[in-house]
Design a protein around this nucleic acid. Sequence first.
DNA 1: CATCATGTACCTTAATTACCCGACAAGGCG
DNA 2: CGCCTTGTCGGGTAATTAAGGTACATGATG
Lengths: 254, 254
Amino acid sequence: MASGDETGFWPWVEAIDRAETISGLRDTLLAAFSYVGFTAAYFLAPVVSDARVGRVLTNVGFPREWEERYRAEFYLIDPIATHAITRRGAFCWPDDLAETPLKPAERDYLALLADYGMERGVGLASFGPFARTGFVGVGLPRSGIAIDRRSILMVEVAARLAHQRYLRLIDPFPNGPPSLSDREIEVLSLIAQGKSNAVIAQLLDISPSSVDVYVKRIFTKMGVADRTSASVRALAMGLVVTGRFPKQSHSGRL
Amino acid sequence: MASGDETGFWPWVEAIDRAETISGLRDTLLAAFSYVGFTAAYFLAPVVSDARVGRVLTNVGFPREWEERYRAEFYLIDPIATHAITRRGAFCWPDDLAETPLKPAERDYLALLADYGMERGVGLASFGPFARTGFVGVGLPRSGIAIDRRSILMVEVAARLAHQRYLRLIDPFPNGPPSLSDREIEVLSLIAQGKSNAVIAQLLDISPSSVDVYVKRIFTKMGVADRTSASVRALAMGLVVTGRFPKQSHSGRL
DNA sequence: CATCATGTACCTTAATTACCCGACAAGGCG
DNA sequence: CGCCTTGTCGGGTAATTAAGGTACATGATG
C-alpha cells in the first residue's frame, strides 16, 4: 500500500477520540482517511430506507458538481448507503455490490460516480444508541493505492469511532428513558411485541383492567398517546428488544 | 501504562477482523484485552432495560463464583450494562457511574464486584444493525496498570469491531427488509410515528380507504398482523427513522 | 404520619383498527 | 396480450384501543 501503515495510524484514532468540536472531528477524520489513502468522504445521517427522511449530506472533498447532482437527483437513490444498512462492517464499492440486484436508477448513479473519476471507495453504516444510524462513504483513493482489507479496516475503525464521538458531541447528555416500574417495562415489552391487552393480561396472569391501567400509565410517563409511538420510542431508547437473538450462547461462547 | 502500547495493538485489531469462528473471535478479543492490560471479560447480548429479555451471559476470566452469583442474583440488576445503553462510547466503571443515581441493589452489585477484587473496569455497548445491541464488560486489570483514556479507547475499538464481526459470523447473509413500494414506505413511516389511519389519509391527501389498503399490504409483506409489530420491525430493519435528528448540518458540517 | 409510587381491579364510551368484500386505471414484463 | 404490481376508492363488521372515571392495599420515603 502506498499510504501509511498501521504504525502511524493509531495516533489518528486517538485524535478522533479527543476531538472536541464537530469541525475538528470532521477535519481529523478526513486526515485519518487521507492517511489511509482516500481524499474525500461524504456523510449521511440518518440513513433509512425512507430516504425522504432527514439524510443530511455532508461532503468533504468530492467534486462540487457531483454534490449538486447528488442533492438534486440521487439523494433518494444512492444504493451504497441503502446497502450499508444491512451489511455488517465496511465494504468496498462498487465491488461488493456486484451480487446485489440494482434498479436502473441505482446503476445510473454508480455510472455517474465513475464518470467523475470515483470508481471505487469504501462505505459503511455506523449504528448508535437510540437507533441513530449514520453512513460514511469514502472515495477518491490516491492513484496507486490498493483498497485492501487493511485499508477498509482502518476506514471502518476511524469512521465508527468518529460516529460515536459525533453523537456524543451533538448530544452529550441525552435524556435518559423515563423511569418505568418493573411491571410497566414488562407490559411495554409485550406491547412492542404487538400483543393485545387481552393477551398481555393472559401472559401476566392479571386482569385486562390492570393491563389497561399499566398501558395508560406508560403512555403518560412516556408522553405518547398510542402504543405504536410507545413501542417505537421504547425501542429507540433501548427499553425493549426486538428481533430474534440466539437463546443460548454459541458453543464457542463469545 | 505497564501494558502494551499502541504500536503493538493494531495487529490484534486486524486479527479480530480476520476471525473466522466464534471461538476464535472470542480468544482473539480476549488476547487483545489482555494486551491492553485486562485479563477478563463478560459479554451480554442483547442488552436492553428489560433485563428479563435474553441477556445471554458469556464470561471469560472472571471468577466462577462471581458468574454463579451473577446468574442467580445480579442478572437483572447489573447497572453497568444498563448504563452502557445510554452512554456513547466506552466508560470506566465504577468511576463514570459516580454521578448516576443507583438503587440499593445496584450498589450491592458494585460492592460484590469489589469483594472479588474487581474494583474497576471498562464497559461499553456496541450497536449493530437491526437494533442488535451487545454489552462488553472488561475487568481484572493487571496490577499496576492505570485505566487511562488510551486503554479505554483500545478496549472500545477492539470490542466494537468484534461485535460487528460476531454479528457477521452468526448471520452472514441477513434477510434484507421486504421490498415495499414508495407509498407503502411512506405510510409505514407515518404508522411508526403513531399516526392514525385517518390522519395519514389527511397528510397524504388520499381517502382513508386507500390508507387501509396500504396498511393491509404492508402487514402482508412484513409478515405482521398489527401496526405496532410493523413499526418495531420497520425500525429494527432501518426502514424508518425515529428520534429527533438535526434538520441541518451543524456549522462545522461533519 | 402523610404522601407518593406501585400493583391490582372494575366500568363506560367513543374512536380506531383489523379484516372481509368489492372495483378500476396505469404501467411493467414475459 | 394476459399477468402482476401499484395506486386509488368504496362498503361493512367485529374486535381492540384510548381515555375518562373510581377504588384499595402495599411499601417506601419524606
